[in-house]
Every structure is written in structure tokens, then in C-alpha cells.
Amino acid sequence: MDRFKKIKSIVTPFDKVNVDTDQIVPKQFLKLIQKTGFGKFLFYNWRFNSDEKPNSGFILNDPKYKNSKILITQDNFGCGSSREHAVWALQDYGFSVIIAPSFADIFFSNCFKNGLLAIILNSKIVEKLLKIQTEIEVDLENQIIKTDTEIIPFQIDEYKKKNLLNGLDEIALTLKYQDKILEYEKKSTISSLL
């Protein structure tokens, strides 16, 4: 994975609650397992009309947000099916940060496994960010979001933060230390690892 750097971008305000992974990537694309290219299926049923032409009324099709790397949305984003394709699609489309008051559990975990930063902020701040028209900066290292007028701190698990900043893949990281882990486990019980 690439190292996570500061992200400065306009935000795409996606004011919806309970956005499920069926909406993020509809079922017909799940059988495809190519490495890249899931971005074109992102929010497919909302982004495109039935004639497959872009739906001009959908926020992602607004030229203003074309290069946006930050998606702001509402509670329980990513609920429903466990499909990891949802994260692949958001990333491939160009998003690096998703901000919401809450995320569904499996989706949240899948984000960090792929280097997508999911930030939980309280509803009032999210409401404010949904209205912001100027660029904001997400500074993971210092755990702050800078707008033109204020600095908003956010919480993140230290381990997840370190992995993102160093571009470390959680699974690869653990597997690289497999020998040492096994050696350690032989000497001690698992519980003492924690």
C-alpha cells in the first residue's frame, strides 16, 4: 500500500444515512475480480440512468466534485453485505477519506485493510462539513482536519494510523513476523501477548 499523505481536497457531500454496500457496488459486479477498475461501478444505480448515461442529478456527477478525494456521509455507512468490493470501488474512483458519524462494522474493518481512511466524527461536525464548499485538509499524522476557519481533531486507533502512515498492509505486516510470532507463542500463552 502507498503511504498515506496529507489529503487536501474539496469534499463530496453525500447526505444519506444507512448507505448499504449493495448501493456502493451492485451485485452484478461482484463476480468480477479484476484487480482494478471497480471505480466505474461505484454507486452504479445512482450514478447512471437506465440507459447507462450519467444521471446529472447525482452528486458524484456534479463537475464540481470531479477530483474530490473526501466523501462526507451519514450514519451507518457501508451496512449490509460484507463485500470488500465496496472499498475497492471507493478507492478506485478516487476517494482516500470517508467521514461519517458511524460506519458498519465489516465495512470499517475492510477500509483499513485496503488503506482507505475512515474517520468517525460527531453528527454536528459532519452536518457542518456537509455544507462546506471550500477545500479541507486531512492531516492523519496530527489527527486533524483543517478547514478555512477551524481545526477539527479526530480519533483513530494508533495501530491503524501507523499502518496507514507507513503504507503497511496489516496482513502483510503480521505475516512478515510470522516466525517471530510463532517463536514467541511457543514460549508464552496467547493471552500474555495482549
Binding site: S82, N110, T174
Partner: peptide, 14 residues
């Protein structure tokens, strides 16, 4: 409980 693909890959190996 359900897991994503990456987590499942990890479980299968470890």
C-alpha cells in the same frame, strides 16, 4: 460472524 476478503485471507493462512 462475517469478515471481509482480506480478513478471511488472514484467517485461512493463520
Amino acid at each position: 460472524c462475517g469478515l471481509g476478503h482480506t480478513d478471511m485471507a488472514y484467517v485461512l493462512l493463520n
